[in-house]
């Protein structure tokens, strides 16, 4: 370059050569990296065989049943009865609240986890020193609409928790040990991978296929893919879900129970004020107690016996020490 803004022929050729060499080199590197076959599909063998165990070892399950209409107070009392949330959440823990946000329906219809309970559960976790609280589910309907219209997103935000939506990259193909249904199946694993403790928050509901939807059925919201195929073997899939996830705690909300036309409901007349909150380290026992609110025995819900046989908990609740309280 001889003057500002003027370029010599020699400079021009030199620069053009440099750009050309760079472009060719770049294209060459891209060509070396290019895989014309694309990524190979994962096979059953390539799926991780695993389950997610967040349970706290204990000789017997810890269960509290509190009667009353105020979720904030019943949860507080139940946790106190079990020795406080500190028994389950340690300072620095990353907690996952697995809610039921399956439908884009308002909280008052009882088809989803109640936002007040989500807020209170997150608040208790933070009070125990949790580093983070994540609220997650893979809803049946559009995830954003579900979390928004149920009021769960708002409740989570107010409590300082983060909603994790089920994006494709947050699923892994997983097979459970000795599984027959969850084989190389997409599971919403990101929230589980990033958690130290898992708390299930489920409402008590009638369910057209399984008879009832409570703590154990709540893990269905971790499945991806064409999961409705599993409706043909609904009790079998709930059994396998009980193997997939062993929670730290479940909070089964029977303050208002959906006693008919579940799992969607749609009318306030499908609901019954049952004034009961169950907090348990054992999801099987929690579901046995929740079934009573629907007027159902464990025998009417085969998934309870199957989950108990799979080691997920104890169905014979009469031999358990249940702390029963009333507001």
């Amino acid at each position: 370059m001889t003057e500002r803004g003027v370029i010599s022929r020699r400079d021009f050729l030199r620069r053009s050569a440099r750009i050309g060499v760079s472009a060719v080199a770049g294209a060459g590197v891209a060509g070396l990296c290019f895989d014309p076959a694309g990524p190979a599909p994962k096979t059953a063998d390539s799926a991780a065989i695993r389950s997610f165990d967040f349970s706290i070892p204990a000789e017997t399950p810890q269960i509290a049943v509190v009667r009353g209409p105020d979720r904030k107070e019943t949860l507080r009392l139940a946790l106190e009865a079990l020795g406080g949330i500190e028994q389950f959440v340690a300072p620095g823990d990353r907690v996952l609240l697995k809610v039921n946000a399956a439908f884009s329906s308002p909280a008052m219809l009882g088809a989803t986890s109640h936002p007040e309970l989500v807020f209170e559960a997150a608040r208790h976790c933070f009070a125990a020193g949790a580093r983070s609280v994540t609220v997650a589910d893979n809803p049946i309907n559009d995830p954003s609409a579900c979390f928004t219209l149920t009021g769960i997103a708002d409740a989570a935000q107010k409590a300082g928790a983060v909603v994790m939506l089920p994006r494709p990259q947050r699923f892994d193909r997983i097979s459970i040990p000795e599984g027959r249904l969850i084989l190389n199946w997409p599971v919403f694993s990101a929230p589980l991978n990033g958690a130290d403790k898992v708390i299930g928050l489920a409402p008590v509901k009638d369910h057209h296929r399984s008879g009832a939807s409570m703590s154990l059925k709540n893990w269905y919201g971790l499945l991806g893919g064409r999961r409705n195929l599993f409706h043909q073997n609904i009790h079998g899939i709930i059994r396998e879900l009980s193997i997939l996830v062993r929670p730290t705690l479940v909070v089964l909300d029977g303050t208002v129970s959906m006693i008919a036309n579940g799992p969607t409901g749609g009318s306030m007349s499908d609901l019954k004020q049952t004034d009961t909150l169950i907090v348990s380290t054992d999801p099987v026992a929690a579901d046995v107690l929740g079934a009573r609110l629907l007027g159902l025995s464990p025998a009417a819900l085969p998934f309870i016996g199957e989950a108990a046989a799979a080691g997920a908990g104890i169905a014979d609740v009469d031999r358990l020490n249940i702390k029963e309280l009333k507001l």
């Binding site: 399956a102 439908f103 884009s104 049946i140 309907n141 609409a145 219209l149 369910h207 057209h208 296929r209 399984s210 939807s213 409705n228 409706h231 609904i234 036309n261 579940g262 799992p263 969607t264």
Partner: peptide, 23 residues
Amino acid sequence: ADKINGKAELYLSAGVQHLTARR
């Protein structure tokens, strides 16, 4: 079932053609 989950069976056994939903 993508919309109404477990209640779909009730409609399928009764010969449903389509569900149209809107908020």
